[in-house]
Design a protein around this nucleic acid. Structure first.
Lengths: 153, 153
DNA sequence: CAGCGTATGTCAGAATACTGACATGAGTCA
DNA sequence: TGACTCATGTCAGTATTCTGACATACGCTG
């Protein structure tokens, strides 16, 4: 912070760079997913379900970083198109565990290949050690940002 | 990549973590900017103009990672509310250089303090060296992601 | 048991950002 | 000069996501 009242120097701000990186990643993902007729949120939902079958709408929303309302309309679409199934009524409480259909699994496979290629490209030029370091740094930032939120609630 | 066809392990994916960090940062910024009646994009625009007066609509859009159409409606709002001024017609070409008004500068000052506190909180627990390392890693990722885009165009 | 706080699924409306399209001006090149 | 390409500002329509609100279901605590 060498400047007094000149605001935040965007060229040196980690926050700005984080936003820039995230934007570049999202754009790159959109590019490879578009030919498959799939959006990033769309893909995120399927990938989450593949790894943790039975996740509820709200849990999927948190995992994809959208509101549960947004995830709900997406799930309804995916359900209508036959990629996902949910029981008609909850076995316990209101939670409706969602699962991939075989069709959904097939659709996801192609998308995963595409997304993996983007991630590989993103990490090109970084050593394993650098990647591990970046991983820890991002985790540290996330943890620090969330500490205060919990206090507030 | 130790797994065969099980998709991308979200718990170990730098891409997922990047999205998570960016989401946490955006949420934290929204929290501190809301009391000031300002959105993140709103703030980004003002901050960009403070540091690089005379930026055009399209340049601002690129700097804030939105389309120029989106930035255009935002600029029209900011202009109507007296935070920004643009000449009625272009001196050369179609480019209309935008500038902050004194009112816009005052509004930005408060927002900058709030946003800076978020960035400070995010970096708490990281040494200068770690921050520098993270900075280089993010720059590397951005560069790698963009290389291919340029080839495609 | 009754009350309270919390979490969920869902509907509806508002805000936000995007894609598509058009006209205009600058630069390049034959 | 004329044709072509590219970038810009802007309008319109669409899509996506969010905020607000409600009913319901669980767990805890007195």
């Amino acid at each position: 912070m060498s400047q007094k009242g000149a605001g935040i120097d965007l060229d040196k701000s980690l926050g700005y760079l984080l936003k820039e990186a995230s934007s570049a990643l999202r754009t790159a993902m959109e590019e490879v997913l578009r030919p498959l007729g799939m959006s990033v949120t769309h893909y995120s939902c399927l990938e989450l379900l593949a790894q943790r079958p039975g996740l509820s709408n709200s849990e999927l929303a948190r995992g994809a970083f959208v509101t549960r309302q947004t995830m709900n309309v997406l799930l309804q679409t995916l359900e209508r198109e036959g990629y996902v199934t949910r029981p008609a009524e909850a076995a316990v409480g209101k939670v409706l565990p969602a699962r991939l259909t075989p069709s959904g699994r097939r659709s996801l496979e192609k998308a995963t290949v595409a997304v993996r290629s983007v991630e590989v490209r993103m990490l090109a030029g970084m050593t394993e050690a650098e990647q591990a370091h970046a991983f820890r740094s991002l985790q540290s930032m996330i943890g620090s940002l969330r500490e205060r939120d919990e206090d507030a609630s």
